[in-house]
Design a protein around this nucleic acid. Sequence first.
DNA 1: ATGCACCTTGTAGCAACTACAAGGTCAAGC
DNA 2: GCTTGACCTTGTAGTTGCTACAAGGTGCAT
Lengths: 132, 132
Amino acid sequence: MRIGELAKATGTKAETIRYYEREGILPTADRTDSNYRDYSDNHLAALTFVRRARQLGFSMAQVRELLALSNHEDNPCQDIDRLVQLQLTEVERKIADLMALRDELGQMLRSCQADKIGECQIIGSLGRQSVM
Amino acid sequence: MRIGELAKATGTKAETIRYYEREGILPTADRTDSNYRDYSDNHLAALTFVRRARQLGFSMAQVRELLALSNHEDNPCQDIDRLVQLQLTEVERKIADLMALRDELGQMLRSCQADKIGECQIIGSLGRQSVM
DNA sequence: ATGCACCTTGTAGCAACTACAAGGTCAAGC
DNA sequence: GCTTGACCTTGTAGTTGCTACAAGGTGCAT
Ligand SMILES: [Zn+2]
Ligand SMILES: [Zn+2]
Ligand SMILES: [Zn+2]
Ligand SMILES: [Zn+2]
């Protein structure tokens, strides 16, 4: 398949696929006589893996690790578990941070009863250090 | 005050302060005879405002809007409310996304009972399209 | 006078793409 | 046969919000 088909099949822009190839995240593709990239089902599987990992919030560096690990079938699962657990912890931290933000923003919205910016509590609270 | 003091007072790196000035987010400072930036309390207040808004997740573009609005004391509060509400909605969307991620990662961790990567369910589930 | 902390400008790098520009290839339609 | 249009190629530059130098100037204590 050509890059456009692969792009459509995985919901990835062609430019991103080329970028992954440059970065060594995806193996290089064969070329047709006219120098078009020619992808196999293995490439489809690899790109699906990469995109899924990225959607799950893994960094490119982590994706590299996951790829390397997945090529060592005899290695213990622990190695993968560690990465997933790390990512889970990170996601939980982000959720906590965002929930604190949400609360602050909600409070700001409820706080202002003024109708001119001159007396706006929101503007006021932006100029003060956070207490949270 | 000099840039280092302002930096310490606001928990901002000096380089970031210069960057804000270049970007027009902060007004330029006076200069001493030796060309050092010389900040006033107004600058301190402005930088505090900016940093707080950034901590609350507002983009630089939104901070510019907030600053512009805060300088029009006669404008209605609605304009500010709109920005805060927008940001609140965005934060809520991110929380929902991250909670879905957290659930998927948790499920992946629980799913794998193998001890060799060859049979790892986690690796397997990365290669499949998400169902969620 | 020498060290050291601080300041100045300018430039380049980070992550993970995204967006061109300038040109080559290929099938369809007239 | 020729044009149109969709697709492909490479290479380079832009995005966001900083951060990290490098190379030099300043100010104060020892
Ligand atoms: Zn091995
Ligand atoms: Zn208000
Ligand atoms: Zn006005
Ligand atoms: Zn496993």
